[in-house]
Design a protein around this nucleic acid. Sequence first.
RNA 1: GGCCCCAUGGUCAAGCGGUUAAGACACAGCCCUUUCACGGCUGUAACAGGGGUUCGAGUCCCCUUGGGGUCACCA
Length: 504
Amino acid sequence: MEIKNIKHGRKDYKMQREVRTRYAPSPTGYMHIGNLRTALYEYLIAKSQNGKFILRIEDTDQERLVEGAVDIIYKTLKLCGLQHDEGPDIGGPYAPYVQSERKDTYLPYAKELIEKGHAYYCFCSKERLDALRKEAEEKGQTYMYDRHCLGLSKEEIEEKLKSGQPYVIRQKMPREGSTSFEDAVYGTITIENNMLEDQILIKSDGLPTYNFANVIDDHLMGITHVVRGSEYLSSTPKYNLLYDAFGWEIPVYVHLPLIVKPDGSKISKRKGDAGFHDLIEMGYLVKAIINYIALLGWSPESNQEIFSLEELVKEFNIKHISKSPSAFDMDKLRWFNAQYIRAMTPDEFYEHARPYLEKAITNKNIDLKKVSKLLQARTEVLTEIPSKVGFLNELTDYDLNIYVHKKMKTTLENSLESLKAAVPVLESIEDWNEETIHNKLLELVNQMGIKNGQLLWPIRTAITGWEVTPGGAVEIADLLGKEETLRRVHIGIERLEKALAGNC
RNA sequence: GGCCCCAUGGUCAAGCGGUUAAGACACAGCCCUUUCACGGCUGUAACAGGGGUUCGAGUCCCCUUGGGGUCACCA
């Protein structure tokens, strides 16, 4: 009862403490979409409680280091607006924030553990370990370190140390009982202690393993909420044993469900799955990506779907994080992207579309801004722009059958009539713009006593040569200009006449 | 294989013992309309299976099945 009260008091204290989360990537050069979401949630958890978001680089595995990877991390966080409050590039009260630069801080803690009886030196060679592993495998057993070095006497250890024999430091796990912990999303998790291996804390190169460094650094840096992927769920008891051995307060754990591919398998760089930067290159907007992944594994209380980062900060709540893995759905991302495109002002969209338009449209007479207006409601992903505007450059050969449209009630014959009738009307337009073209053409429709489509469909067909185009006859005629429009209409007339004559 | 976790339409998901089981994407149809889009409306579609508990179970418990994670001197 008393203990319970103490714990309770501690919890209250914790609630008053400043919330501190950390994003702790290892610099391997690829921004996995799941990692990004972890960073996002860490940011949201901190910011929604007026806390701090810290960036820490976990580079204790020097073999996996990738040049420039840290810059990718900075760049991505910045692009996404996930501005950290402390980190290697901006410093902070707990610097340094790169684990390789904190190399010397870990060993003393490991030694403290040895003194307390929670860890021990191990001099086993890689060969011996491999042989052990192989043997276990052949017997169909689960390999676990046999504690060979636990029995070493103090003298033996001294001697080996003195002779410079390479060593690691292992955590000594309890062999009986079980360890439970509370996860903010998964609830209580219990694992039998005999499932816990005497994991390595300090590697033979003197650097700590993740398993050790994360505990030391999280404590030293005052991290209150440890947020990470659910793959760490089963090793969390090991970390808690460490916290307990040191007498440190255990942080709040927030394990996140995985993001998987539509077929349920996990996303991997090796299989060529798209990372964050690939999505950007594919024409997706940063804000759309953030919005989408925020909703992959978390849901707001309302039915709102479109969220700015600021709104997410307001709405985010750990309680609504789900436990089951979610599939990354490109279609839905596309939809979000389209939503963001439509929400832009015409000028904003133009700025985004311009690079694509400039590359795709070689016809210098075309007003790109007008094209951009036509495209905004018809674009879901920026990269699809080029495929929609080719007809503006030049009129290519087209199948005359596209003049025939059932719903428009157009045929080769009446298309020819319409085009012929349109020529003098178009020629008579002095001030060539959408309004004048529109008015004149509709006037003609009235005169001819036909439906709009019967005149406009053939014109659009003649001046584009495409069955489907962004914009109708009027907009496109305006874009092409009077001369080019008439030139293309005449080509249409010629080709239709030829075809009809041939048929008779 | 041992251990851990998960399980509502094709996908993302709401739901906290009593609901006609939301909403979104995708799909289909209709409307708008000079094509295509946009927009609007409508529709198809789900509680994995079996046992309990309860007056009553998607909601709680157990089993089965399925999926995922984890078992490194990687994180």
